[in-house]
Nucleic acid binder design. Sequence first.
DNA 1: GCGCGGCCTATTGTCTGACAATTCCAGGAT
DNA 2: ATCCTGGAATTGTCAGACAATAGGCCGCGC
Lengths: 266, 266
Amino acid sequence: MVARRIESLVRSGDLTRGSRLPSEPRLAEMLDVSRASLREALKGLVFLGLLKARAGDGTYLQPSLSSMATRHLQWMLLLDEIKYLELYELREVLEPAVAALAARRATRDDLEQMRSALDGMKRAANDPRAFVEHEMDFHNAITRASKNGAIQSTMQMMYGAFSEGKHRVLPLVHDLARHCARHERIFRLIASGDATGARRAINNDVRYAESLLRQNLQDLQKDDPHRIRRKPTKRMAESRVSRQPPDAKSVVREKHTLKTFGGKHV
Amino acid sequence: MVARRIESLVRSGDLTRGSRLPSEPRLAEMLDVSRASLREALKGLVFLGLLKARAGDGTYLQPSLSSMATRHLQWMLLLDEIKYLELYELREVLEPAVAALAARRATRDDLEQMRSALDGMKRAANDPRAFVEHEMDFHNAITRASKNGAIQSTMQMMYGAFSEGKHRVLPLVHDLARHCARHERIFRLIASGDATGARRAINNDVRYAESLLRQNLQDLQKDDPHRIRRKPTKRMAESRVSRQPPDAKSVVREKHTLKTFGGKHV
DNA sequence: GCGCGGCCTATTGTCTGACAATTCCAGGAT
DNA sequence: ATCCTGGAATTGTCAGACAATAGGCCGCGC
């Protein structure tokens, strides 16, 4: 409730983005609560990403909310409320559309960023970690080029969820050269303003990655389910295995397994 | 940092969904921090929607994370980081795809829910508030029918942002009968499993709504330009303009202004 | 035997006061 | 002019206490 009142303070427009809030004792007096309660409320808003507290300085409104906590998809993954293949399905919906928008709206600056990300990918051909990093830069550049804050925010949420289990996607990039070529092609299509072409190219890309992931999951189940894991803590072993990995079949044959697919959650 | 440790406790799987956390004094001792600090961390997680505290009882893990705070889009709208038309663009991307999935996967139960929501809309023909409510039910039923938790979560985020300014969208529904007919048609397409048909129908629907909104915005601007934008801070002006946002005109004519959008790269 | 109300306990919510850690700024020393 | 140091303001943390609430237990009355 205290947080609501702080929210309404923000809403009322007295505070502009980036501005500093009154100090805690002062705010506590203004709202007529103890400093402890006030701090709990502030902490909540900090967690939501609306505020940022700096010790010794003050509490500020986040200048940009794009950094706002978008961790809920990650949590749902972690707690088994969604599965990786579902995430891929979302990606299959979003990314082609984003690429199409990017093809129509990319500025020279956007294109330069994609270009340099691509170069980075090529340079990091034998450093998978850096490679994935640069690939993410590339996709982020595309997203930015869509010139749509709502879409950017959504994509950020999705990517954030993916990064949670990146180690699974990583073995995908076994054929780096071809991977680069694909992205190069996407880049050219976007640069030339070919929206439908870019859409189709990205669509292929996502579907390809998805098929690889699916295959990978099958291999994992057959070979050695523990190979990918890097930190074999007890919890991971439990969650990874018992988590009943989004079995490829249920999606592949989705029409025939309607009942088993949809959990009753939500 | 304390919150991280609590998170890792949750991650570790010792806690299952819906289970109760140790009491605050106990947890504080376990993590070796004071109760006040612990409480701030807990409050943060409560705000994120991961936990739920019940006075006199205990603190529980949220049984379903679908309720997780997805307010950041709302905040971005509020603080002018995104615009309604951007949100519509996102909707234009998501909703048709969701409808297509729903057409393929809807169970009898899903269809019944859509049906009853439609009936509710018809009944509430002269109560705009209830009407919008039932319409939301209808769309939610479609989303559920997609049988994809990630997509559901994303849609929920988007709808949540819309509801923030529902009063603006509300004047759209001036022709209720036709509105119902459109939805009826969508329902039939989904029920018959016609994915592409449903996609196209929803697409039309969203575009239509968008055009109405756009018209509405123009009217508003003519009447009272300050209703929309209340605080033109310097920072916004800078970012908005340089970023070449999809304001009404630029989106409307986007196909005809390819050169000004991405002209340099052709 | 069964239902019901009151007590009792555990838990969260709030308050108070104090101290540590950090940052910013200004004034003085070099 | 520049660097350094001290003080002030602010957030971060701690300890202890009490209020408010929910749930269970026991005994009482029917």
